[in-house]
């Protein structure tokens, strides 16, 4: 995945079955963001794989004051890349479940 300066990782082990997964997001390189972000630390949240889109969550993070509006796309992309990887892994490792 492209280096967006924003890191998103699983916050719990993925058993391949749950529809919602816990993710953790933090800024690795603040210079890649357009707006100034607060020194947030790591933001942990749950993501509904079937129901939600990374854009929705990114917008909520902006609304909650974690990031500037101008960075909503880079946040969404970072989440999207990680979610795509998780879904790819699930389909590859547990094809019977899909």
């Amino acid at each position: 995945a492209e280096d967006t300066g924003v890191r998103v990782e699983l916050a719990e082990e993925d058993d391949g079955r749950k529809s919602s997964i816990a993710l953790r997001l933090w800024v690795e390189d603040a210079k890649k963001l357009k707006g100034k972000s607060k020194d947030n630390g790591a933001i942990e949240f749950t993501f509904e794989l079937e129901k939600e889109t990374p854009d929705d969550v990114a917008q909520e993070m902006v609304d909650a004051g974690f990031f500037h509006e101008s960075d909503v796309k880079i946040i969404a992309k970072s989440i999207r890349d990680r979610v795509a990887l998780i879904q790819w892994r699930r389909e590859r490792i547990c094809p019977m479940l899909h």
Binding site: I43, E44, F45, A64
Partner: peptide
Amino acid sequence: NSFTQVVHSAGRRFIVSPVPESRLREQ
């Protein structure tokens, strides 16, 4: 721990905690 902060927004719960030093990229 005491550094953990919980932020609610649009029905979602964000849990904010410090990033462990080992996870930060070296500048």
